[in-house]
Design a protein around this nucleic acid. Structure first.
Lengths: 251, 251
DNA sequence: TAGTGGTCTAGACCACAGA
DNA sequence: CTGTGGTCTAGACCACTAG
């Protein structure tokens, strides 16, 4: 019995591939083959609709998929773009953002969004071993690679260890300042990492939609006396970072 | 001029909150308040439709949002469920999965999906410093916490270091076996972590939809002589893991 | 078999970016 | 101003889970 389909029979009862995944594959191929360069812009959703004949919802499903994979990202109401490659982050090397991004042939930059002195919430007070309500410096910064915002961070520092910190220019290496101006040397580094969704605050700072996937890296830097030098919460775009650790085993 | 809206005026020109985010908030509140216990099931999408009056697409947007945040997960065509809390993973402690999951008051289990002997691809051959095409053991396992699959891993081992490995039961600690039966002691651990999307293979193993967000952890374990004891690619559900590292600074 | 989520359509109006 | 993505509706049929 002949097939009623106009399409050729593959001879294999191939598992049904949803349309949005087929579309995803086509776009991904365009990216991997280099037809679309990193930073380059994809055709608009409505254009893709015309090209593929699919409904816009289906198109968007394919785009969301690629976004989750880190292949593309969006600029709000501007369009979809091909993601640049991620940078590698090694927390065991005490090199700051500016250093390791440069080492990887990219151009880092930093913007200070705010510097405040705020009363310590109980959880933070506990970390710094100060009384709840004590004043702490909180610096909010945005860091960019090749002009694209990749992370928003919130750094907390105890003013007792670094009085007058906020008078410095904080657009360079904060580690550098803490070390050279205040003699604070970090000998221990505690880190927590977990996938998260970027909440509105952060998302706005990165110019992404609230709820897009991200990676939260929390670093606690300690000096020889075990004092907390720096408590840093970094919210990364999920497509911009790879963490690499090389370590000798304890236990 | 009086408002034509039937809704009370808040007095604040509150930023417009999309309907799906408002719905997200309502569900999130239900979870955080404990009305919905971890592992518990959410009302069906169609039920939520009746409750909220929104279109199903809007309901699903809210659910996707919560999924991205790690608050809920789905079982294909069965329903949406509240995510259990994540486990903390410390790569500097040489404790295996079975150990640290148990320590955190959860119940681990392991299933071996396959054990094969395959020719080394160039990239892998390079890691093991063997000729491309050399035979290597590849073990695929699924690991569960409290009966829920949280990761699929693909472990590669050089048969020269652990001949006959596949004859052992591999549902326990592989590290243990390598140590006690073959005298292979790991002294160095290299790790790479990055957010990813789970491809079909892995997604099927975890019982999730292809493309859901995940975390890829690649571990390379080395012994005193610098030989690769174990090369392990772990694909985690993104809501199931937190990585914690505590280290002394090199540079 | 009944109910669930998975996929898909074909519209609509909006807020905002950018020329 | 035009075009972009962001949100939303109201349907439809399918594949699969689970009782």
């Amino acid at each position: 019995m002949p097939s009623t389909s106009a399409l050729p029979d593959t001879g294999k009862e191939a598992a049904h591939v949803p349309q949005y995944l087929a579309l995803r594959d086509r776009i991904a191929e365009g990216i991997e083959s280099g037809k679309l360069a990193p930073g380059g812009r994809l055709p608009s959703e409505r254009q893709l609709q015309l090209d593929s004949g699919a409904a816009r919802g289906t198109i968007r499903e394919a785009l969301f998929q690629l976004e989750a994979e880190g292949l593309i990202y969006r600029r709000d109401r501007s369009g979809w773009y091909v993601s640049p490659p991620p940078v590698t982050y090694d927390p065991t090397r005490w090199a700051g953002f500016m250093t390791y991004v440069t080492e990887q042939g990219r151009t880092p930059s930093t913007e200070t969004l705010s510097t405040e002195e705020v009363p310590a919430a109980p959880a933070v007070a506990d970390i710094f071993r100060v009384a709840p309500g004590s004043r702490l410096y909180v610096v909010t910064r945005r860091r960019l690679i090749d002009g694209r915002a990749v992370l928003v961070e919130r750094i907390t520092v105890d003013p007792k260890l670094a009085p007058g910190l906020c008078e410095h220019s904080l657009n360079g290496s904060l580690t550098q300042i803490l070390s050279s101006h205040y003699g604070l040397a970090v000998v221990r580094n505690r880190m927590d990492m977990r996938p998260c969704a970027l909440v509105k605050d952060v998302a706005d700072g990165l110019g992404v939609k609230a709820g897009t996937p991200g990676l939260l890296v929390v670093r606690t830097s300690l000096d020889k006396q075990g004092r907390v030098v720096e408590y840093d919460q970094e919210y990364w775009r999920h497509d911009s970072i790879r963490v690499h650790v090389d370590l000798t085993v304890k236990d």
